[in-house]
Lab assay of single mutants.
Amino acid sequence: DLSALRVEEVQNVINAMQKILECPICLELIKEPVSTKCDHIFCKFCMLKLLNQKKGPSQCPLCKNDITKRSLQESTRFSQLVEELLKIICAFQLDTGLEYANSYNFAKKENNSPEHLKDEVSIIQSMGYRNRAKRLLQSEPENPSLQETSLSVQLSNLGTVRTLRTKQRIQPQRTSVYIELGSDSSEDTVNKATYCSVGDQELLQITPQGTRDEISLDSAKKAACEFSETDVTNTEHHQPSNNDLNTTEKRAAERHPEKYQGSSVSNLHVEPCGTNTHASSLQHENSSLLLTKDRMNVEKAEF
């Protein structure tokens, strides 16, 4: 173990290094160091905050020279020094078990990766560091076993998940096959086929009936047209017969005018059967003409 005197000496050296690497504005270890034209180094955030307070150039807090945003430059070497100082402080805390008085939040800088452990060898070769390295080497064999167990647990979990997924996939297939086998029997399929065939026959029977009705309507229309044509021909046949009657009536009127007047009046009210309204109107006109002729003949006879 380190003596108290040596611990104090190391602590004083760390404090001196820390004062050199402090920012003059925030009085902390410089984060993202930036250098000016006057070779003074500050935190990048502190300098941008200072420049944004005034429009135009501002003055350096140490030498009062003008500073602009374009004049600022990043210093990589200074950032490396800060990183190495942080590593020294971490090693000091691990070796002594004491917390550094002016320690900052170094938890963000710590890294437990194997590459980081290899890099620590180049920091300080001390008894405390050696003991700590031995402890780490002793704890390393235990870690692979834990990793193997965790991997086995994960693989077993994956296997159970896969088996569950396969079961879920197989179950719908089985149910679907069961439904297909038990849903419709052979008799049901035959009945469905016969039902479809009967429906098709009914459709075939319905369509000819409609065509037959249309044919019957067409035949009825044709018969009505033929009947009207026969009526017209009958009226045409009746007209010459009426003319013959008129000639006979004229002759009778010349011989017996008194008797014919009474008979002509009675004939006005008689309509021949089986004739249309057109034929009756023609008869009325003929009878009126005959009456006028008879009157003329009677007057001539009187004179």
Rank of each mutant, 00 (worst) to 15 (best):
I30N: 06
E229Q: 01
R295T: 01
D218Y: 03
K31N: 10
E140A: 11
M17L: 04
E180K: 13
N131T: 15
E249G: 03
T175M: 10
D231Y: 05
Y104F: 09
L146M: 07
T76K: 11
N52Y: 01
N143K: 09
P33T: 12
I67V: 12
G159A: 14
Q73R: 10
Q53H: 08
N157K: 11
E22G: 07
S241G: 00
T207A: 05
E142D: 12
S152R: 08
P57T: 06
N191S: 05
K222N: 03
N243Y: 00
C46G: 13
R70W: 07
S216C: 02
Q73P: 10
M47V: 12
S3A: 14
T277N: 06
L72Q: 07
E32G: 06
L2S: 12
C38F: 15
F42I: 02
L164P: 07
D218V: 14
A101S: 13
Q11H: 03
L62F: 02
I170M: 01
P257A: 00
V232G: 10
T189N: 11
K192N: 15
M47I: 05
I30S: 11
E142K: 13
R162S: 07
N157I: 06
T96I: 12
V298L: 12
P208T: 00
Q80E: 05
E140V: 05
R169L: 07
R135G: 11
L217V: 03
I20L: 11
K250R: 02
S197N: 06
F92I: 11
Q168K: 14
A91V: 14
L158P: 13
Q80R: 13
R212K: 08
N276I: 02
D218H: 07
N234S: 04
L158V: 11
Y100F: 09
Y195D: 12
I30M: 08
S197G: 13
Q125E: 05
H278L: 00
A133G: 11
P61H: 02
S79N: 04
I41L: 07
K293N: 01
K134I: 04
P144L: 04
K167N: 11
A301V: 04
S126T: 06
Q11R: 02
K37T: 10
D1N: 09
G262V: 11
T230P: 04
L5I: 08
V161M: 09
Q125K: 06
L94R: 13
E120K: 10
M127I: 06
L29F: 01
I30F: 11
D184Y: 03
Q168H: 00
L268F: 02
V190F: 13
E83V: 08
K64E: 03
Q59R: 05
P33S: 12
V265L: 08
K300R: 00
S152G: 10
L98S: 03
L27V: 11
G274D: 04
S186Y: 14
L51P: 13
V190I: 09
K44N: 06
N243S: 06
E28K: 11
Q80K: 08
R130G: 12
R212W: 00
C46R: 15
T230S: 04
L137V: 05
E285Q: 14
D39N: 04
Q201P: 02
G262D: 13
S79I: 13
F45V: 09
P33L: 14
H40P: 15
T68I: 03
Q168R: 13
E83A: 10
I25M: 01
N102K: 05
K64Q: 13
Y260H: 05
Q261K: 11
S219Y: 02
E120D: 14
H238Y: 00
K37Q: 00
I25S: 10
S281L: 01
S103R: 09
S156F: 03
N65T: 12
T76S: 01
Q147K: 12
Q80H: 03
L86F: 09
A193S: 12
K64N: 13
K55N: 10
A223V: 07
E148V: 10
R255S: 13
K222E: 10
L282S: 09
N243I: 15
V270M: 10
E84V: 15
K259M: 01
A252T: 03
Q93E: 07
H269R: 05
R169G: 09
E226G: 01
S150N: 06
N157H: 10
D95V: 15
F92L: 12
D188G: 01
L50F: 10
E110D: 12
Y260C: 08
P114T: 05
K37M: 01
E226K: 11
T163S: 10
T211S: 15
V121G: 08
K31Q: 07
L203W: 00
K118Q: 11
E258G: 12
Q53R: 07
T247A: 02
A279V: 08
V161E: 09
V82A: 08
N52D: 09
V13I: 02
K108T: 00
K87E: 07
N143Y: 02
S139I: 03
R174W: 02
C38R: 15
N276T: 01
L155P: 14
I89N: 09
L204V: 01
S264P: 14
T96S: 11
L164Q: 12
R6S: 08
K250M: 04
S122F: 15
I124F: 07
R6L: 05
N111I: 04
I30T: 09
Q93H: 13
I41K: 08
L81H: 07
L29V: 04
S176P: 11
N15Y: 05
L5R: 13
S3Y: 09
T76P: 07
L21I: 06
C23Y: 15
S35Y: 07
S263R: 01
V161L: 07
I25V: 05
R70K: 07
R132L: 02
P172T: 14
L86M: 08
M17R: 15
E9A: 00
R174S: 04
L5V: 08
C273Y: 08
I89L: 10
K31E: 13
I88N: 13
A224G: 15
E8V: 03
P61S: 05
A279T: 14
S280N: 10
T233S: 03
P141T: 07
L137R: 11
S280I: 02
S288I: 13
E84K: 09
R165W: 02
S183Y: 00
F42Y: 05
T96K: 13
S35C: 09
F45I: 05
F78Y: 04
M17I: 06
L137P: 06
R132G: 14
K222R: 07
Q73K: 09
E299Q: 14
R135I: 04
N297T: 00
H278D: 04
D66N: 05
E236V: 02
K55I: 03
E148K: 15
A224T: 04
K31R: 07
G97D: 10
L48M: 03
C273R: 01
E22K: 04
S266L: 01
K49I: 00
V10A: 06
T149I: 02
C26F: 15
S75I: 02
D39V: 05
Q201H: 10
A224V: 09
S266A: 01
L117V: 02
E74G: 14
V82G: 07
T76A: 03
S3T: 08
T194P: 03
R6P: 13
C26G: 15
T292A: 03
R6C: 05
E236G: 00
G128D: 08
S126G: 10
E214K: 15
L81P: 14
A133P: 02
A133T: 04
I67M: 07
N15I: 11
D231V: 06
T248N: 06
E249K: 14
T160I: 07
Q53K: 05
L21F: 07
R174K: 10
E226D: 07
D244G: 08
S263T: 05
S103G: 04
A101E: 04
P114A: 00
N131S: 13
I25F: 08
S176F: 00
L217F: 03
H269Y: 01
K19I: 02
K250E: 11
E299K: 10
Q171K: 02
P24H: 08
N243H: 04
E22A: 10
D1G: 02
G128V: 11
L98F: 12
P24T: 09
R251S: 11
H284N: 05
R212T: 07
S216I: 13
L5H: 08
S3F: 03
D244E: 11
L81I: 11
K19E: 11
R135S: 03
V34A: 04
G182V: 09
Q18L: 10
A193T: 11
Q147L: 00
Q205H: 05
V34G: 12
F78C: 03
E28D: 10
L94V: 06
V232I: 09
T233I: 06
C273G: 01
F45S: 12
N297I: 14
R295S: 04
E148Q: 06
L155I: 00
K134Q: 10
P57L: 10
H278N: 11
V82F: 11
F78V: 03
L217M: 12
T233K: 13
K37E: 00
V10E: 15
D213A: 02
L27Q: 11
C23F: 14
P24S: 11
E148A: 15
Y104N: 00
V265A: 03
N157T: 07
T211N: 02
S266T: 01
N131I: 11
N243K: 14
T233A: 01
N15H: 09
K64R: 09
T68N: 03
S156C: 07
Q261P: 02
V7F: 02
N243D: 11
T149A: 09
L27M: 11
E8D: 13
S152T: 02
E302G: 13
E8A: 06
Q18E: 11
S197R: 06
E28A: 10
Q80L: 01
P172H: 10
E285D: 06
